[in-house]
Design a protein around this nucleic acid. Structure first.
Lengths: 157, 157
DNA sequence: GCCGATTGGTTTCAGATGTAACTATTATGC
DNA sequence: GCATAATAGTTACATCTGAAACCAATCGGC
């Protein structure tokens, strides 16, 4: 007969439930970071992510951006439209394949990018201040494994 | 003079950036779970969370629900409206304070709740399958500390 | 008791997001 | 070469979300 200690919990305590906890943590962190750059630069989260991708890997087409930052092409298209309107991103022409529109940061875009990166890294460093360097490595490794595993679970449905 | 090893990274690699990683992980997990109960029960994430809160702590008023599950009152109001329309949640009257509307699951609501809980716990268990029991405890503890710390950082602005 | 402030909750409006349809261009099979 | 399929990206529509305005009921000071 199963001992009570072995029986899995049949009640769901939301505040201990992993999917819920991840969601609340991620949202708090994302909003906190957004507060830092939204005021001075008036960027949406999606827009900032596109800029971050282009800041590192330009030129990229819209769909390449999407692959890098896990954003669907519609979201990328809209973010790019906003960034282009404000002169932060430039669209170039690919003469070999005219469907594609390689993107890169404009001079202004690079300037904004260069000012946000330190803000973002500083916030991340403050956040990691909750953990020792060793714990930080642990957390990174464990969350990575959760992510890989979640992807596997999702595929096998 | 600072050694290169001590210098903090001045480039932002999105795929290693904690806020970004948390966001992508949380979204993947949340969507995977949603897939499990959305098909059979047609519940939005917010609706399921309200049901989970009421399943454990009913009766609760709308604002008490909001406090427990970190959802603003507008979102709670809308989720409750949808649940009530489908007969999953009942609104009772508080005769001492007629502004308040204590909520509880209906019989149907309890039945749906009782069928979703095992699905959710099973998914969580599969997800935790990526980690050993010891690692799982570590991850829970570390993510908790990140959360507390993120809240502190946010207040001190 | 009465008036202004507070609280519980809903509605409204504007912006964000996802799905599907659409346009334009390039690749493929025959 | 031409018809069909596939790909890059945008547009349209329907839904979701958040902020602020709003209504109703209660509290607090006097």
């Amino acid at each position: 007969m199963p001992s009570p200690l072995q029986a899995p919990s049949r009640t769901l305590e939301l505040e201990k439930f992993l999917p819920y906890r991840l969601s609340v943590l991620a949202q708090l962190v994302s909003e906190s970071l957004h507060d830092l750059y939204a005021g001075p630069f008036d960027l949406a989260v999606t827009e900032w992510r596109v800029m971050a991708a282009l800041g590192r890997f330009a030129p990229l087409t819209a769909s390449e951006v999407g692959q890098r930052i896990v954003m669907d092409k519609v979201a990328v298209s809209r973010a790019v439209a906003g960034l282009e309107k404000r002169g932060l991103v430039e669209r170039t022409a690919d003469r070999a394949d005219r469907r594609r529109a390689p993107l890169r940061l404009s001079a202004r875009g690079r300037s904004v990018h260069a000012r946000i990166v330190p803000l973002a890294l500083e916030y991340e460093a403050e956040l990691y201040g909750a953990l020792t360097p060793e714990e930080r490595r642990q957390f990174d490794a464990l969350s990575d494994r959760l992510f890989i595993h979640a992807q596997l679970l999702r595929q096998n449905r």
